[in-house]
Simulated scan of single mutants.
Amino acid sequence: MTSNTFTHATDYLDAARELADSGRPTLARLLAEEASARTSNPADAARILAEFPGGSLRSED
């Protein structure tokens, strides 16, 4: 059974890939942005965002 708890960047990244594979690119991008934000290495964060192209969908208030 799969856990629905997201505690690590890899959890968000795995879910983003699943959503991308199922034809939900917008949701995939949002999860990829969260994975990127939770990644301490800037090169890894950039790589994650490059895997899911598009502009930022996050709203920062």
Rank of each mutant, 00 (worst) to 15 (best):
R47S: 12
A16V: 12
E60G: 05
A9D: 05
I48L: 01
R24V: 03
D14H: 13
L57W: 08
Y12M: 06
T26D: 11
R38L: 13
A9L: 04
H8I: 11
A20E: 12
A45I: 09
T7I: 11
L19W: 06
G54K: 07
R47V: 02
D11E: 11
T26Y: 08
F52R: 03
E51S: 12
R17A: 12
D61Y: 14
G54V: 10
F52A: 04
D14F: 14
G23C: 00
A15Q: 14
G23L: 02
L30Y: 04
L49C: 02
T39P: 00
D14T: 15
L31E: 00
L19H: 05
P53D: 05
S40D: 11
T39W: 02
T26G: 01
R17D: 07
S3E: 09
D44A: 07
R29D: 01
E51Y: 00
G23D: 01
D11M: 11
A16W: 07
P25H: 05
D21R: 14
R38Q: 12
T10S: 14
T7E: 13
E18F: 07
S56F: 11
I48W: 00
S56C: 12
P42M: 06
T7P: 05
F52M: 08
A50H: 01
G54N: 06
A46Q: 10
E51R: 09
N4I: 09
T2R: 15
S36I: 08
H8Y: 13
F52V: 05
D44M: 05
L57K: 15
L49A: 01
D11Q: 12
T10F: 05
A50W: 02
T5I: 15
A45E: 00
G54F: 10
T7K: 15
R29A: 05
S36G: 10
G54T: 09
D14A: 15
I48V: 08
S3Y: 07
N41Y: 01
S56T: 15
H8T: 15
S3I: 09
S3C: 03
G55D: 10
R24K: 12
S56D: 15
A32W: 02
R24C: 01
D44W: 04
A46N: 08
S22E: 14
G54S: 05
S56R: 15
I48Y: 04
A28I: 04
L30E: 09
S56K: 14
E33P: 07
A9F: 06
A32K: 03
P42V: 07
A16Q: 10
A45L: 07
M1P: 00
D21V: 08
A50I: 02
E51G: 03
L19Y: 08
P25F: 02
F6R: 11
L13R: 13
R47K: 12
T5L: 13
A37S: 10
A9R: 11
A9K: 06
A28Y: 05
I48S: 01
